[in-house]
Design a protein around this nucleic acid. Structure first.
Lengths: 343, 343
DNA sequence: ATCGTTACCGAGAACGTTCCCAATACGGAC
DNA sequence: GTCCGTATTGGGAACGTTCTCGGTAACGAT
């Protein structure tokens, strides 16, 4: 079978040198003209070179450019998993923020393994990323310290260790808003499905919960606080524990939407109606919760803002000591899953 | 402030040349020994070199290696969005398959814009990927043709255009299994929330639906087939249309889990119970559906198998003409959302 | 006419790796 | 002792780009 010469021609890469020859200038000139970082020239040569480059279908060889420039315009993102919609939203926001600044975000997954963030980071670093964004920080691990020691630029996102550069949401405020909302509706026994305590986000939401109760003069009943992971099943179990209490709560604040969905399932199974018998609040406002049979009241997190802040910190660094941790503001979105307590 | 010399030392990259000098051999030798593609040597020099490289903390400069080798060991994946859990599962499966073969998967998002797959692919190509995996194929677009003409290696996944290399699931069988399951339970009026007809997956599921009905001697009532997109809201609307029919269906097969979740919401709103009044079947078996208050019967798709097949096709090509489209087998997972029709 | 100043251009050396090629060493067979 | 095959090594030229540096032209100010 004869080979299409057109194809062959396409396959052999067209380089700067080819463009230079075709345009009758040196490759230095072409390089300069096509360098998007330099102020754009509109001289005759510039126009001609751009035209020729387009005609020939020239695309810069990224590998060669990276080698010479010493950076890749690529940043690495580490997430526990992407099938968790929160993490997908977060990655999408970062990807958008990157493309706005001519960069690209690549992602590595830890599958929720405690130490897998190290290998994930290593993979990304080998790929030559210019910096790292981690959403897997644990308060009981000093991986961030190691990275600092190795001189790797990175920013923590969603969770912080309190020291490293971080871009997070005000989880204490989020927890406060959720709990306050339930208190305002008249609830006094409010269950908390608390997240794992190695995550600063869980801790913050817990503090907000306590603060709101304290403010309202309601004493905190420890039996109303049940630990959980961030998973659906765990939320279901926690809700079961809560509702089997001698005096069960009339409302539940779940550490995130997943656990709230799990709780919803338990409540339904126990024949309890939401919000008739029990009110329920989630956290993160992932798209699905507004479309559940009973749309869920949730706390919305400004992912794009957090992503932008993270990227800005990574690129330009903090403006001062006070700027090492940027904190975005969450918003409560009331929906049908919360109402006055039953009398 | 004095600069920590340790940090400075770390910052200046340790190259092949450094290892070579430290080990007293040439850089050619080091390069060969550290080349993971060559059969691993266990000679004295090899051991020493590896030791020295480790001690010095050498990591290969990916950009330089790519430039010389002419490939990047990176493949590009195009998806409509990652907040759709199906797409996230699919990307995670591809990422796993890649890492098993020493490669890495990077992803670009089209936000469901019809022509955005072109720019997404372009972005990935500029990043120097060795090949493309597209999950955005439309039967009414010839982007795959263009790629073929340009000589870009690619494989379609989940959806096919019937010509290009593809790795898909047997959607006709999936649709058949779902419908057959409902027929076996005794349903005769089965509504179909059909997906967009530009997707081969929708078309296949529709054919399976028709085939199962035909086999059972049930005539196809066109009013029971309602078009939708793949989104939750669209599923909710479609279910509304179905249930407002003069003679509404006793069961609904939704083209995917998202539309099923939308349908669930409508049914609940109309005061109908699942499966008491209406049975419901979804497609893809995303994790959440097994944890809904009423766990959803769904069709499970072997994502890992599909990902492996796609990657194999991309790397080694088809074994023959018959092998251009690889088809995996779906499985019906019965759960509580399906039961006998009400009498 | 001279001197800056500004703008543009080309030559050529990097960047860190791979890989071709020639050279050397080591056996074993004759 | 010679010859051949096999392994292992180092030299050095790529790969395609960027970037420094020196050079030239144009132009206004002196």
């Amino acid at each position: 079978m004869p080979v299409d010469p057109e194809i062959l021609e396409r396959q052999s890469r067209v380089t700067l040198h080819d463009v230079a020859a075709a345009a009758g200038v040196s490759k230095s000139t072409v390089s300069r003209i096509l360098d998007e970082r330099l102020p754009r020239s509109d001289s005759e040569t510039a126009k001609r070179v751009r035209q020729v480059a387009a005609d020939l279908g020239y695309v810069r060889d990224g590998a060669a450019a990276s080698l010479r420039r010493g950076n890749t315009m690529t940043i690495g993102v580490v997430v526990p998993r992407l099938t968790d919609t929160v993490m997908a939203m977060h990655y999408e926001a970062l990807a958008r923020a990157c493309s706005r600044t001519g960069r690209f975000a690549i992602v590595a997954i830890t599958e929720d393994e405690p130490k897998a963030d190290r290998t994930a980071a290593q993979t990304l670093l080998q790929r030559g990323v210019d910096g790292l964004i981690l959403s897997t920080a644990r308060t009981d691990d000093d991986f961030p310290q190691e990275l600092t020691a190795r001189g790797v630029p990175f920013v923590l996102i969603l969770r912080t260790d309190g020291r490293s550069l971080s871009s997070v949401v005000d989880d204490r405020l989020g927890g406060y808003l959720a709990t306050r909302h339930l208190l305002d509706l008249g609830h006094r026994r409010i269950g908390l499905i608390a997240g794992p305590d190695y995550a600063s986000s869980s801790q913050g939401r817990l503090k907000g919960y306590q603060q709101a109760l304290a403010e309202a003069g309601v004493s905190v009943d420890p039996s109303l606080i049940v630990d959980a992971t961030f998973g659906i099943d765990s939320g279901a179990e926690a809700a079961e524990t809560l509702m089997r209490l001698p005096v069960p709560p009339t409302a539940i604040f779940a550490v995130n939407d997943n656990t709230a969905i799990g709780a919803l399932s338990t409540l339904q199974r126990l024949g309890l109606s939401v919000p008739g018998d029990v009110s329920l609040v989630g956290y993160n406002d992932i798209p699905i919760v507004s479309r559940l049979p009973t749309p869920l009241t949730s706390v919305r997190v400004p992912f794009d803002q957090i992503a932008n802040a993270a990227l800005d910190l990574l690129t330009h660094g903090p403006t001062g000591e006070h700027d090492r941790i940027r904190i975005a503001t969450p918003t409560l979105i009331p929906r049908r899953s919360t109402a006055h307590p039953p009398r």
